[in-house]
Design a protein around this nucleic acid. Sequence first.
DNA 1: ATGGCAGGCTATGCCTGA
Length: 256
Amino acid sequence: MKIVSWNVNSLKVRLPALLTWMKTVKPEIIALQETKLVDAEFPMSAFTELGYHAYCSGQKTYNGMALITRDNPCSEIVVDMPQFADIQRRLLAATWNGYRVINVYVPNGSELTSEKYQYKLAWLAAFEKFMQDQLAKYEKVIVLGDFNIAPTDLDVHDPKIWQNCVLVSEPERSALQKIVNLGLKDLYREIKPTGQDFTWWDYRAGAFRRNNGLRIDLVLASLPLLSSAQDYWIDKTVRADERPSDHAPVVVEFLE
DNA sequence: ATGGCAGGCTATGCCTGA
């Protein structure tokens, strides 16, 4: 079973590239972030024609989530966290074939002095409570998406440049750690303890060519799933294509 | 060298992203 997380930075722009890629990789589950489409504009038939079911929670211009699943539909779909009223569409959780899949687009935070940074920390605190509940209810849990947090300096091309910046700051890293400590593992680190593969590269300054990137797109899994996680890769070829997203898709393969 | 790139909008520059 292959599961994918990809921040597409506009599904409208990236749809042809996504469909081509899907036909090659044939994942069972695809979690998208930053679709930037209201639900009425979601390209449902493009996915159903390929034998997929698709679920979306979008808004105009910003954010927006989708979950696309092969063959079988999803149930128990959740797009809001209890006690965290939010117009920003950043969550889409669903159950597929016994897997609880939780797709997230964690706020960026802008800069440490910004109100948006406080919103990021509040969102993460609410998400911790949400995950506590989800892990109590479900056994096979996969949390994936754009976390907008590089877990450690090993996930940063140049920690000196990024020192004291949003995406690496201590409060957000410890907020992520608290969520992981509920009973999840960062699968990339499990599989590649000293690896330094990135998932995002700035569009500017030849960052991709220089491999100046960050690992901010993560796949976390509950402990019962650890032994079945077989492979993990970040598809950099897509980032090198014409008109790419600034994020590469991450793929995890589980034994059925 | 402190910039630069991309996407969306009711826009023709500004906001946001990371």
